[in-house]
Write a protein that binds this DNA or RNA. Structure first.
Lengths: 211, 211
DNA sequence: ACAAGGTTCAAACGTTCGTTTAAATCATTC
DNA sequence: GAATGATTTAAACGAACGTTTGAACCTTGT
């Protein structure tokens, strides 16, 4: 019942179309046509368009956040046991790696990444409210861990740099297609592990500079 | 004629609403109501909703890009004259500072920043086509200048890091309101010159690491 | 004063939207 | 196998959308 084939087909179609065209530019008729189900099925199974969006986000965000929180907790426990603060890079990796690893789980999960990237770009949008409600605790935990690992930085500076890091991450989450401005001799398709390292090189250097 | 009061009122209203709610979530009725003009005025003066969006973007993007290109050209000329490559930070500053300086020109220009930030987040959206057409030459110039200033980095790496830098910039362009995840004791409202330095510290470190 | 052209206006156009309805169909249980 | 509840279906709902229309309204030149 909770995983009815109809529900799953709707979630898959909505995930793809919301990510590709945005929430407001995607109609329920387009979603149900792609899913091969009746138009009324969305309202029957989810209650409405906005509730469908929340279901699309939560289906993947909940397990993803559990993974990230688990890695972060393990890092903090280990630090308490050994008395050595985890490095900025390790903390960021706990957040970033499970995220980008979603790309290896097929095109469906890739759609989710793009959707989240879009969501972060619409501060007053419908999806943002849903998203922030489920991200706030983890972000708070991440912020605290980073301030401890960068004791020479003010909270102001840590906040701004974390803000910039989130901006970078959301950008590469949503831009996994060829860009018009991609110069020759440059491939935008890189293996995930390499992408993670490229990102961590960049973000860690930015977080730690002058610290 | 080109700067009829009606046209200007429509551009201002559209700029604000497109930035706040997005292109598809903003109706012409909402725009004309805010502008205090008749509904048909948009089609009369601009030809349609999409043409209005392009006019909104170009009104500020054209002079902004001229300023950025001018600063970049001056930097490159000076380098040719002195034989010393401009630093990564100087190059990025030529691009970033005129952008963020728009914040000092009132709430209207701030709306434009948020609109561009949103645009960059919708790779297949209506605005992206318009935007990329007018950004491509400048981005190409920026890319070439950066590869020369970072000779130890592969084009791949420069591209990825520029990509991440653009992500950071677009993020702070669109997020100038209070965030739900902003911790206490942190003010998100900083003077522009300080914000430019915070950004350049972060982005330059990220660009130059291991180079 | 009048004609002409640019501009504004209220009203309506046809379309598409999210949602609802009530009948039809399916699956399950007694 | 009839009954019950869950699901699917086709059709329609009212509302809102972008756009068009043609008359009214200004402004300008003669």
């Amino acid at each position: 019942m909770s995983s009815s084939p109809t529900k799953r087909k709707i979630l898959d179609a909505a995930e793809h179309l919301f990510a590709r065209d945005g929430y407001h530019a995607t109609s329920l008729r387009c979603i149900t046509a792609r899913a091969g189900v009746n138009l009324a099925a969305v309202n029957y199974h989810f209650g409405g368009k906005e509730a469908l969006l929340e279901a699309v986000i939560l289906r993947r965000l909940t397990p993803l956040n559990a993974t990230r929180q688990g890695l972060l907790d393990r890092l903090l426990e280990e630090a308490e046991r050994s008395g050595v603060q985890p490095s900025c890079r390790e903390i960021l990796r706990a957040f970033v790696e499970p995220t980008l690893r979603l790309r290896e789980k097929g095109a469906e999960a890739e759609d989710f990444l793009a959707l989240v990237g879009r969501t972060l770009a619409e501060p007053r949008g419908v999806a943002m409210t849903i998203f922030m409600r489920h991200m706030a605790p983890l972000m708070q935990c991440l912020f605290v861990a980073l301030t401890r690992s960068l004791p020479n930085l003010s909270e102001q500076d840590v906040f701004w740099r974390l803000h910039l890091t989130v901006g970078s991450l959301s950008h590469i989450m949503r831009c996994h297609e060829r860009y018009a401005m991609v110069p020759e001799n440059v491939s935008i398709a890189a293996p995930v592990s390499e992408l993670v390292d490229v990102f961590l090189d960049f973000a860690t250097a930015g977080m730690e500079v002058n610290a």
